[in-house]
Amino acid sequence: MDYAALSRQERDRLIAEGADPDSVILQSELHNHVIRREGESIDDYTKRHSDTMNAMIRRGVSILNDLLTADVVPSGFGTEDGRFFDLGPESGATKGEYREFSQWLSEVSVAGQTYEVPEKWLKFEKPAGDLNYDSGDRP
């Protein structure tokens, strides 16, 4: 699967739907936003790069991963009650949404509590019949 092309297509789609072009960038473009300073150590640059990327995400910037090289990536989450949520590369989920959903599900699973799925995650719920096992996706 060509994740770089998928990321570029997703960026184009979001911009066509009205997203501010500065709010949707490709991971390969991050170096344009965080330029290594002369004499800066690699450790200092890496920390500044990470801090800048996290600040961008907090501001609502979508950073689409066009550098993915894995053939199979985690794409979905199954809940104890048998529901499946697809946040994979073709779902439209951002890296931030993926991280946030993963953290939320982990917290409610560890707590062993009865939970209601927040409305913002319902757009990623897929009926069991819609799962595509041929592509490597597994709940």
Results as ranks from 00 to 15, higher is better:
T69M: 06
K120G: 03
F124I: 02
F85D: 00
S50F: 02
S109H: 09
T79R: 07
E29L: 02
D137V: 04
P118I: 01
P139A: 13
E80F: 07
M53N: 10
F85E: 03
D66W: 14
G60W: 06
D44Q: 11
G112S: 08
S75Q: 13
G18M: 08
P139Y: 01
D43V: 06
E100M: 04
A93Y: 11
R138C: 11
Q27F: 13
L64Q: 02
D43Y: 06
M56I: 14
T52V: 09
P127R: 01
I15P: 04
A70R: 06
E17R: 01
A93M: 00
F101E: 00
D134R: 15
T69D: 08
H33A: 00
G39Y: 01
Y133M: 11
G129V: 10
L14P: 04
T94D: 09
E80S: 14
R36K: 06
R48V: 10
P127S: 10
D81P: 10
Y45Q: 06
R13Q: 05
D51L: 10
R37A: 13
R83W: 02
R36N: 00
Q113F: 12
L105A: 12
P118N: 00
G18T: 05
T114L: 08
N32D: 14
R37E: 12
V117S: 05
V72N: 01
G39L: 05
S135E: 12
D130H: 13
I42S: 10
S41A: 04
D81C: 11
A128H: 00
Y45P: 05
Y133A: 11
V72M: 05
G112M: 08
K95N: 12
P118F: 06
R13S: 01
I15C: 10
D20W: 03
L68N: 09
I42R: 08
G82D: 04
D43A: 13
D44E: 15
S109G: 14
R59M: 15
S62H: 12
L87F: 15
T79I: 00
D12W: 00
H33F: 15
G129P: 12
Q113M: 14
V108E: 05
I15Q: 06
D22G: 04
L131S: 04
G112H: 11
Y133P: 08
T46Y: 11
S62I: 14
A111F: 08
P127H: 03
F77Y: 15
E97M: 12
R83F: 01
S109D: 09
